[in-house]
Amino acid sequence: MTEPEVTEVLVPPTLGVVASIGDLAEGRDWLDSLPGLIAELREGWALRLGAPWTGGSCSWVAPAELPDGRPAVLKISWPHPEMMGEAAALRVWHAHGAVTLHAHDGVRHALLLERADPGTTLGDSDGLPAEERLLIAAGLLNRLWSAPVADPGGFDLLSHVTARWAGLIEQRMARLRPGFDPGLVALGARLLRELPTTAARRVLVHGDVNPGNILAARREPWLVIDPKPMVGDPGYDPWKLVEQIDDPFRHPNPAAVLRRRFALFGQVTGEDPARLAAWAAARRVEDSLWWVSRGNPPSHRAMAEAAILASIAGL
């Protein structure tokens, strides 16, 4: 193991955010239990552990070494709905385009994972042009979406999740009165209800595929990590990649950049670029209302971006 073994349990300060999410007492109880969980897993899986990586807000993640010397990663998550399907999704993908799942402890909400080396994120690969990085991501998504799911009932349905979001959009708009275009907000809510029901196919979507969740590796050039899986329309997945590979709205002609990016995803995956833009518009509206619900000032820029996306979708 390149990192020195750490015997004292370290908890990054960023993990303190779990005490402010959901039930405060549950978050504090989990943080209090974390040193014991780490010790039990270290012993049970016979691991050597390095110092945890910082930056995570809902999981304790550290480099590990397996008994046979192979590098690995130990991830212990604060139990919340979005993380519950991670192990099952990694089993479905069976290390094809995603990191290998070595072991899973469902009681302790712990995963023992393949370590991607060197682990550079797709977002930090500055030597690659944005469109080339998007093509890499689209190829990975195509592989993930192609995996057969023996038990779709073991995952949340995207249609149920986005229908709930649509209801929250309407409630937040009425309660918070942020001054957003009511027609655009209504469109976002309608799309979240309708898009999942009109999909040509249903697949296991990653749910949070962004440039930080695609890592450079040796077994394959790139591997995805950290899924928040759901079963539903594959068109849901690409938006965070399109938005975060760089900021398309800072280009002189953002609509042209966005059309090109959605077209690239369409060429690789066979998905309709207009549907990808519609999903992006819906998610931008949902993000905007979520942002205001957290006590932040309304972002009229974000809603203007949603309008651009809706126009690209022909809506």
Rank of each mutant, 00 (worst) to 15 (best):
L111V: 02
L47M: 09
H94L: 00
G69N: 09
L112T: 04
I76A: 07
L101N: 12
L47E: 08
W53G: 15
R91D: 03
P63C: 01
G106C: 03
M83G: 15
P71W: 03
S57H: 10
A116Q: 07
E86C: 09
S59C: 05
K75T: 02
E65F: 01
W78T: 09
G97T: 11
L47R: 08
A98D: 05
A72R: 07
G44T: 08
G56D: 14
A46S: 15
G85M: 04
W60L: 10
L41G: 06
T54H: 13
G85E: 12
G55R: 08
A98Q: 05
G44M: 02
L49E: 07
W53Q: 13
R42G: 09
V92Q: 11
A88Q: 09
W60I: 13
A46M: 03
W93L: 01
R70V: 00
L101C: 08
L112N: 08
G50F: 03
G56M: 00
P63S: 04
P81T: 10
L112V: 02
R115F: 03
P52C: 06
A51S: 15
P63N: 04
V107C: 05
A46I: 00
A64E: 05
L66M: 13
L112Y: 07
A110W: 07
W60R: 11
R42Q: 11
D117R: 13
A88S: 14
A88W: 02
L66E: 06
V107R: 14
R42T: 12
P52L: 06
H109N: 15
T100S: 13
R48N: 02
A116V: 10
W45Q: 12
L111Q: 11
A98G: 04
A62M: 08
P81L: 06
R108H: 11
W53K: 06
A64N: 04
V92M: 05
A103D: 14
I76V: 15
W53Y: 15
A89M: 12
A110K: 07
R48W: 05
A51V: 13
P71S: 12
A98P: 05
W60A: 11
H109T: 11
